[in-house]
Write a protein that binds this DNA or RNA. Structure first.
Lengths: 288, 288
DNA sequence: CATCTTTGTATCGCATGCAATATTGATGCG
DNA sequence: CGCATCAATATTGCATGCGATACAAAGATG
């Protein structure tokens, strides 16, 4: 409870949310401890790696990576909502690292378009405009069409089976768990990109996928069961048949459908910011 | 000449080149001064911006950006050859900034694939393998096909004229200046990407273009006049005609031709590393 | 009462210091 | 003479400190 005393000068009012209160107790990377304690506690890990941490190696650079991944996940899963401020030291305290590492992570996330980084004003979770959203979806279509083309030439039976298994997972989670369903649908596309064996392509697809998550968080309607399972199945079939044109076409339509469901029907209660902008402009007030 | 005394413990022999000697006098960002002097000298700039620096704003974050751009240019123009080591403090001294900023720049370049970043072993100019090279070209084709598609829908006359003017520049530089010719050919594609108005697409195209430069530096033959001018003209024509399929197809073929010219004929004197690898392996020696 | 200053405070930008790790060169040994 | 061991050095990884900047509330001024 002493933790509350660390940075409580501002009351953290909801309109301009920042890291504080609740977030302080959300342990994405480390349980909420003071940095110094966390740093002391880091030594004992030395040789026993593999016990506590599940999949992040503990070499040098691993902590920077950890911060990056933690923030990334937090943003994608909307623990950190779009527009939220991301002060370096608050994050550092929560994650048990110094501002340097946080800064590095924020820089990378900024490059990927997940956070905005204004000079001398700090970082905040990106709040893409509708146009940016469309741009992202366009690029995504282009990339995934390429994925489809590449895979249609040489998808193995084993790979097809793996995909089919994944789709069954999606099917299972369909009505039951909304968040899970969305995550699985996204992973399907990542899996496809992985199978191309093209590292760069994979990176780009991952990047646009994250950004799509962010975009759907802002503009997406709550109940659109994102990627229809049947569409995924059709794509697998076309890939296995080796029909590049067909697969590419299906992928294109599929993603266009996703975009349409999400973007063409901007829900009314998007956010105060977007809603107020026209009024602000008409009054000659700077809104951004 | 005192400069030589700063870091001359190593003789900087050519086989494993690092930053030193000649590079010390190559002023990409700042004339070769000691960091501390450069830092003192930074104050006087305060209000008179626009006189000395041409296009890089001098606000906060501008120096980090400067380091990034300087390194990027140096790599693309092959002042820094693939495989070359990039020690943080040497660069910092040359550019008049601290390791922190250099580190940040190297991080970004690593994300973009222009430098390799091994933990505890520092950064070096990336040395893409043939497979990575093929991956990059594949992705590039995918992206630029998308560019062609988008533009074919709505290329204005003015834009077409600008492109045509650019191609004339290319034509002029054709036989005369090899390096210039290559640079212009690359810029044509960047210009196209810009005209889509899609910022993400532009970023990606820029990224793959830089990587292509690096790749051509390693695997490209010296005298391939990269992008045939006529091919560029054909593309413009198809775009203006609004024929998406045709434009996309032309772009695809064009890039495939570039890749083929570059990659399918790996020149013999690629580098010691690649050349020695088979020997090393056949002798049971670890090569990487 | 509204607007301009002022001062305080939370940040950021960046340099630097210290510990950890790799690498080089030297020394001893087979 | 080749190879392993070890010390010296170079270089990274990361934390932290200091100055600069922007925002906010309080105060001053019309």
């Amino acid at each position: 409870m002493i933790l509350y005393a660390i940075r409580m000068h501002k009351p953290d009012f909801p309109g301009r949310a920042t890291l504080g209160s609740r977030w302080r107790f959300c342990h994405v990377l480390l349980p909420a401890e003071r940095r110094s304690e966390a740093l002391k506690a880091r030594k004992p890990d030395s040789e026993v790696t593999g016990a506590g941490a599940s999949h992040q190696a503990s070499g040098p650079g691993a902590r920077a990576q950890g911060v990056y991944r933690a923030l990334r996940r937090a943003i994608i899963e909307q623990a950190l909502r779009p527009g939220m401020k991301l002060p370096e030291d608050a994050i550092g305290e929560n994650l048990g690292v110094s501002r340097t590492l946080v800064r590095e992570a924020l820089g990378r996330l900024a490059v990927e378009g997940l956070v905005e980084l204004k000079p001398n004003r700090g970082a905040s979770v990106a709040y893409p405009t509708l146009e940016e959203a469309r741009d992202v979806f366009d690029v995504r279509r282009g990339l995934e069409r390429l994925v489809a083309e590449i895979l249609s030439a040489n998808l193995t039976k084993a790979q097809a089976a793996a995909l089919e298994a994944h789709v069954q997972l999606e099917e299972a989670a369909l009505g039951r768990n909304g968040a899970e369903s969305i995550r699985l649908a996204g992973e399907f596309h990542i899996k496809l990109a992985e199978m191309t064996g093209n590292a760069l392509l994979l990176r780009y697809v991952q990047e646009v996928s994250s950004r799509c998550s962010l975009i759907l968080a802002i503009y997406g309607r709550p109940h659109s069961s994102e990627c229809a399972v049947s569409e995924h199945r059709q794509i697998i079939k076309a890939l296995l048949a080796g029909d590049a044109a067909q697969a590419s076409q299906l992928m294109d339509h599929h993603l266009q459908a996703v975009a349409a469901r999400a973007l063409l029907a901007p829900r009314q209660e998007r956010d105060i910011r977007e809603l107020l902008t026209p009024y602000a402009l008409s009054e000659g007030l700077a809104s951004t």
